[in-house]
Design a protein around this nucleic acid. Structure first.
Lengths: 333, 333
DNA sequence: CCTTCGCGTCGAAGCGCTTCGATGACCTGC
DNA sequence: GCAGGTCATCGAAGCGCTTCGACGCGAAGG
């Protein structure tokens, strides 16, 4: 059973190959009757255009690259959520997604772009000083970044507005009347790497706390139960007046609650807790956590939209920040 | 700056286009001097073969599809680990990976195969009665499944040997002298879906326990802290002599430990706990968990190898089961 | 009535690559 | 010294698709 080509469809429908092509692409007007005849033949024969041939002739692969990090410290579930949202959205635009890992580095990007395997690039987890950024500026293929490098000039970047997220947490606790709060952040290594989002959260949080005139500090936070237990204990010892806690570390939220429980602090009676994490984690915790969610799905959708717009040659904003949303649950009062 | 084609390279090196092609593919003998001249030109010009053209001419896209599930109840981190291992391994074979989600269903598979976008398919999380299986049998493109459908006849399946994993846990606890043990498994819905691996684990565990003549039961386990707390409490109430616990639910392990802590049971002094989960979760828990790891990386690597072998036309075993490995840590004695 | 136009369709020229058969050049052995 | 055989290389024929220019035809305009 040889695979069906456009010529087979043309013959079956009794038209020229080019007519079939135009019916399928809609790039020229075709009479309703011919169109229907062609469409019927397509269905009857089970025709699927050959991707390679189309890419070659049209210079459009209808594939975008998704470059995921695969370093420690990243939150895997969020990454997956993001990836699936990208795939789903891309399909709506009739595009497929080529999965790449960051460890191929700039060369990998260059390879897929130069070989015309993909039409555009989507990069996750861009760092402040990312070696791939200069390359992206040079590349003819459009790209969209999730996260912000030091200089977003000439690029297209999308991200949650982490500064607003941090501020939202501080605001919420301040509004509830808390006067002494603390933030437990990502593991130290994340800050050292300069990933950006962690700092921005802290900065927004600190600034908001200052505005409210309340006492606030912020510290990195590792992810093993013992380290977290020790960190929470230290925090409570040092700051006896502490009554509000912001946790920006999905892997740690469960352990933080466990540590508080063991240390005899009730949530929210003794300590109010606000997390920055996906909703499912917040909902599954006990008590359910008041949280600012990381809208992985929105980010993915938005990123694909921007990339598609760029592929169409449209101008798009250099930076788009997604507004965070605070959901109040049982862990704060 | 027009993109560099093979013709440019040929001209630059002073040879025929076909010679360049043969140098690059190694499919015919080329003299060392010519080869070097061509290779130099490739480097100087920065030539990258056009993927579409190559695919069209050679009928090989050098791309494989990776189909991930995106349903609830799956373990996202493990999925990610698996995905990255697939990508990394595929690159070693000079292939790229097209990411698809299961929700496109059989049609999606048919589309990418029929359009020659991919040369082969890798499916994760195959169900007992998977609607995609009949299609895979028909497809000309080779495929490899992670997990086992009801009838693996004529397919190529890879998976961890979950029965052995379950047995290993029971063996370990029995060897330590425990006479009353229980298994906390996946959420109920996973069993209802008939995903296979959950049942197989249970079966192996039950069989091993019977062999040792010890008292064992097994129950599904939801993933919220409250439900887990209740389930553990119930278990301890019903079975006062219980001293060994197997947890086969990555999202739940942390909560199970938390529940035991609250219920006043020390681990491992009062209860020994063995988990079936990735190493990083086991290590991060407190106490560090004795565990059987799900070797996502191995599975990914092995799956790609099998697929590549099939692409080469080699025969491969229908079923390959990966041996589980028990790592003894602090949670069992 | 003839020109002009636009619509619907066709044919052919590539797109950049692989691969097959052909062609020399050179060596071997009788 | 020449048939036969290698070895290295070349040229050309596609692979299946898009797209451009051309063309026929009926309608509109002078």
């Amino acid at each position: 059973m040889r695979t069906v080509t456009i010529a087979d469809v043309a013959k079956h429908a009794g038209v020229a190959v080019s007519t079939v092509s135009y019916v399928l692409s809609g790039k020229r007007a075709i009479s309703a009757t011919t169109r229907q005849r062609v469409l019927d033949s397509v269905r009857v024969l089970g025709y699927h255009p050959n991707a390679g041939a189309r890419a070659l002739a049209s210079k459009r692969a209808k594939v975008i690259a998704l470059v995921l990090p695969l370093r420690a410290g990243m939150n895997l579930p969020v990454l997956m959520q993001f990836a699936t949202s990208v795939v789903t959205t891309a399909r709506k635009y009739d595009h497929d997604v080529l999965l790449m890992t960051a460890d191929e580095g700039p060369d990998g990007l260059h390879r897929v772009a130069a070989s015309a395997l993909v039409d555009g690039l989507l990069l996750m987890d861009v760092e402040i000083h990312d070696p791939r950024v200069p390359l992206l500026r040079k590349l003819a293929e459009p790209s969209v970044l999730i996260g912000f490098p030091a200089d977003p000039e000439g690029l297209t970047c999308v991200d949650l507005d982490f500064a607003r997220a941090g501020a939202l947490c501080a605001d919420h606790l301040a509004d509830l009347g808390h006067r002494e709060i603390a933030l437990l952040g990502a593991p130290r290594v994340v800050y050292e790497r300069g990933t950006g989002f962690a700092e921005r959260t802290m900065a927004g949080y600190v600034e908001a706390a200052r505005r409210h005139g309340i006492e606030a500090d912020a510290r990195p936070c590792e992810e093993s139960f013992d380290e977290i237990h020790a960190a929470v204990k230290l925090l409570l010892d040092e700051r006896p007046g502490l009554s509000g806690l912001v946790v920006h570390n999905e892997a740690a939220t469960g352990h933080v609650l466990g540590a508080l429980r063991i240390l005899g602090r009730r949530v929210p009676e003794d300590v109010s807790v606000v997390a920055i994490c996906p909703d499912d984690i917040a909902e599954r915790a006990s008590p359910a956590l008041t949280s600012v969610l990381i809208p992985a799905e929105d980010v993915g959708r938005q990123a694909v939209r921007l990339l598609m717009a760029k592929l169409e040659g449209q101008a798009v904003p250099e930076s788009t920040l997604l507004e965070p949303r605070l959901t109040i649950r049982e862990s704060s009062r």
